[in-house]
Computed example of a mutant assay.
Amino acid sequence: MTADQTMLALAEQTEAEFMFQYEAGAPTDVRAALGMTATRMGGGVVLSMRHDPTGYWSKALGFGVDEPVTADLIAAVCDFYRAEATPAAVLQIAPDLLPADWDDICARENITGGSTWVKLAAEIDTLRPGRTDLRVGPVPPDLHGQWASVVLRCFGMPEQHLGPMLAGAVRDPRFHPYAAWDGDEMVAAANLFVHGTVASLNTGATVPSHRGRGAQSALLTARAAAAARAGCLWVVSETGRPDPGSSNPSLSNMLRVGLTPLYERRNWVWRAEPAGS
Rank of each mutant, 00 (worst) to 15 (best):
E15S: 11
E15M: 12
E17W: 09
F18P: 07
Y22Q: 15
A24N: 15
P27E: 09
A32C: 04
A33N: 10
T39N: 05
R40E: 14
R40K: 13
G42N: 04
S48I: 00
S48D: 06
G55D: 04
K59W: 01
A60Y: 01
L61V: 08
E67N: 09
E67M: 08
P68G: 05
V69R: 02
T70P: 06
A71C: 07
L73V: 03
A75I: 01
V77H: 02
F80E: 02
F80I: 04
R82A: 07
A83I: 02
A83T: 12
A83V: 09
A85D: 15
T86Q: 10
A88S: 15
L91Q: 00
I93D: 04
A94G: 14
D96G: 15
A100E: 15
D104W: 04
E109Q: 13
N110M: 01
S115N: 13
T116Y: 11
T116H: 12
D125N: 13
R128P: 04
D133I: 00
V136E: 03
H144I: 05
W147Q: 11
L152I: 10
C154P: 04
M157T: 09
P158D: 03
E159N: 09
L166N: 12
L166G: 05
R171N: 13
P173E: 13
R174E: 06
H176K: 14
A179E: 03
A180C: 13
D184G: 04
V187M: 01
V187S: 00
A189D: 08
V198M: 12
V198Y: 09
L201R: 09
N202G: 13
G204P: 11
G204N: 09
H210W: 11
G212P: 07
G214I: 03
A225I: 10
A226N: 06
A227I: 10
A228I: 05
R229D: 15
E238D: 14
R241E: 15
R241H: 10
S246H: 13
S247K: 12
P249G: 01
S250Q: 02
L251R: 03
S252Q: 14
N253Q: 07
L255H: 05
R266E: 14
N267I: 00
W268F: 03
W270C: 00
R271A: 01
A272Q: 09
A272M: 04
P274Q: 02
S277V: 11
S277K: 10
